[in-house]
Simulated scan of single mutants.
Amino acid sequence: MAASPLNPKSHYHVRSNSLPSRTHPLISEVEEQLSRLRASEATSSSSSTSSISQKLGGLQDLHDHVDKLLQLPLTQQTLAQEQHAQWVEELLNGSVRLLDVCGIAKDVLLQTKECTNEIQSFMRRRRGGDAEFAREVRNYLVSRKSIKKAIHKTLKGMESKCNNKSIETVAMVNMLREVEAVTLSVFESLLSFVAGPKLPTKSSGWFLVSKLLHPKRVSCEDEETKLEKVDAALQSLLRTSKSDDLVHIENAQNLLVKLEPSIQNLEEELECLFRRLIKTRVSLLNIFNH
């Protein structure tokens, strides 16, 4: 099987050394949260905003516990050892990767909210003739196309770049790699939800491995999301180009009203998670610069 960020064990043949003491309760808690998130990603039967929101909430709890774990003197002493510097640097690079993808997810949600708010405001006013109406709908669809293109580029860029080699490491590092992997997997679900059914092409190793690792997960192709319904409704209106097509306009408006709080909720969850990712990176930097 090809290596994938979703399955860090596929990158390495790892010999895991336990931490030099009995298992701390925080370690057990992180492992339990990881297990729940992996199971949720593998068996989730929908790509709804509620399911993604729950996963983002789970990631917040996970990274809260990770940061507490990094504050333990034992953890800091273990990772601060000179021979472990390479592993800490690897974890730092991973933290940058998570912040970058989270930032992209925040941007595409903001752009999605802005273009949906604009078309919703225009349809509520119902000013102008058919030509202006068609232009505004077309502007929305162009914005959505641009957002999807950016998401597809990001998903393709999330392919693994790790080398296949044997690395002896400590259990703590393996667990933090798993945290990064499951976080990337949830970001993939979120970005795929926003983009809709046209996911990356078959050349994308990330998408192929994701499908192999999560055969039970139903992708966005299998469920029409709220965003897809809005897109379809507006595309239908564009074909008629009639500003007085009240039935279809009302349908599109109702869909936009339902979509608005969903996007807002995802934005808030992402912002909370982004702050936690920053805390984790700061903790790792403190250990690295010790």
Rank of each mutant, 00 (worst) to 15 (best):
P5H: 14
L6F: 11
L6M: 12
S10C: 04
S16I: 06
R22T: 10
T23F: 05
P25V: 06
S45E: 13
S46G: 13
T49V: 07
I52T: 07
K55M: 14
G58D: 08
L59Y: 07
Q60R: 15
D61L: 12
D64N: 14
D64C: 14
V66D: 00
D67Q: 08
A80H: 08
K106T: 09
D107M: 02
Q111P: 00
I119K: 00
I119N: 00
A134Y: 05
A134S: 12
A134N: 06
I147Y: 03
K153T: 08
L155D: 02
G157D: 06
K161F: 11
K165D: 00
S166Q: 12
E168C: 01
V170K: 00
T183C: 04
T183I: 03
S185E: 10
S189A: 13
K202L: 08
W206G: 01
L208W: 09
S210W: 14
C220G: 06
E221Y: 13
D222I: 05
E224I: 05
D244A: 12
D245K: 02
I249N: 01
E260G: 00
N265V: 03
E267D: 11
E269P: 02
E271R: 14
R275P: 09
L277V: 04
K279M: 14
T280I: 12
R281C: 12
S283R: 10
L284M: 05
L284Q: 04
N286P: 05
N289R: 14
N289M: 13
H290M: 14
